[in-house]
Design a protein around this nucleic acid. Structure first.
Lengths: 192, 192
DNA sequence: CAAATTCTGAAACAATCATTTCAAAATTAA
DNA sequence: TTAATTTTGAAATGATTGTTTCAGAATTTG
């Protein structure tokens, strides 16, 4: 048998993700990646593949991480209405903390129009969030916390679309108050 | 005196815009541009400047064009409420027609986090739309077509954020019905 | 027409791009 | 320890990047 890998793959992917996140797919060079990952290119190609395959790893890593975060927080609420409120406010906080925007959204606009594979991954991620939200909404309706005639799937899409726009607004204006106001506005709009 | 330019600058910029729009800033090479513009690179550098300057031309061209379109349509309504409704539905139609998303939004995510010049241009464009919408909303409030306690600036931001998300959703799902439903939902949400 | 001036085309530029090569170092199991 | 196997580092790959060069074609004014 032979020696084992001298670097941690997960850590390497996380570092690569940081670079892709900041510079975008086309704006990132292999040198940027090997510098940040502190791996020689031959090792990189031998283990994680070429630039595109590495990018896929990063997308999967990112979406999985978010998914776990979402599931983790999902069970900590008794009232679905409260859970929805908290979800929206949390997204607003993430938007404000993330100066460079959401990696999935950036990738959706930069890469996925011309890359079906990446698009499929992002769609899957989007569908997951959509399911999470619409389930929450349906529960809220059942518990009479929301209007009976409310279309859960539609409202879920609406929420997702709205906070997508927050990212762009924050990139352009960097105004945390504005984002927070929009979040409370969205909550009040939905839950009355 | 000497000969005049052998190509139309506006047409050349429009062709360059098409390429940048489709491939993004970093995904576009100078060869892509000279091929599409049918101009030799020396002519390009002599007249419009380097890649970055050309990109600025494209952003300015795009935002100006949208601005004119907006102003042109603004005066064709008597009721501000009807104008708002029509604006939102029109945006939905644009989203559906544009398979590759809005150039300004794509650029906001790809370029402007690291390019203050481009960011300033996009912010200016965003502010213009914001002014346009908030003025319309204020008029609607004055004419009692909207709630008196409605914060015009906030609602304008909300509308802009929402339809930004439509672009992403359409890139991922390519479902026109979904976008139209979201548009009518937004309208009903606002104007009740 | 002629002289002046500017634009154009093709080639060349160095730099960087993603990727590959391969010998040597490193590690494992026997 | 030895033989087998894999990772690693540094260099080299050819292609492509953005940009420049410059001689000659083109066009305008006088």
């Amino acid at each position: 048998m032979a020696r084992t890998l001298a670097f941690n793959q997960h850590e390497a992917i996380e570092k690569a993700l940081d670079v892709f996140w900041q510079k975008g797919y086309h704006g990132t060079s292999m040198r940027d990646l090997t510098d940040a990952m502190q791996i020689n290119s031959s090792s990189l190609y031998n283990t994680l593949g070429d630039k595109h395959q590495l990018f896929i790893h990063c997308v999967k890593h990112y979406t999985l991480k978010r998914r776990l975060l979402l599931e983790q927080r999902a069970n900590s609420f008794k009232s679905p209405k409260k859970a929805l409120e908290s979800f929206i406010q949390d997204v607003a906080d993430v938007v404000i903390k993330d100066v460079q925007g959401c990696f999935a959204i950036k990738t959706a606009f930069e890469v996925s129009p011309e890359d079906k594979g990446i698009k499929a991954l992002l769609k899957e991620d989007n569908d997951y969030t959509h399911q999470f939200l619409s389930r929450l909404i349906r529960e809220a309706v059942r518990k009479d916390e929301l209007d009976q005639d409310c279309d859960a799937a539609l409202v879920a899409d609406h929420i997702i679309c709205t906070y997508t726009g927050w990212y762009e607004l924050y990139i352009l204006h960097q105004d945390p108050v504005k984002i927070k106001k929009l979040a409370t506005y969205l909550v009040r709009q939905l839950l009355r």
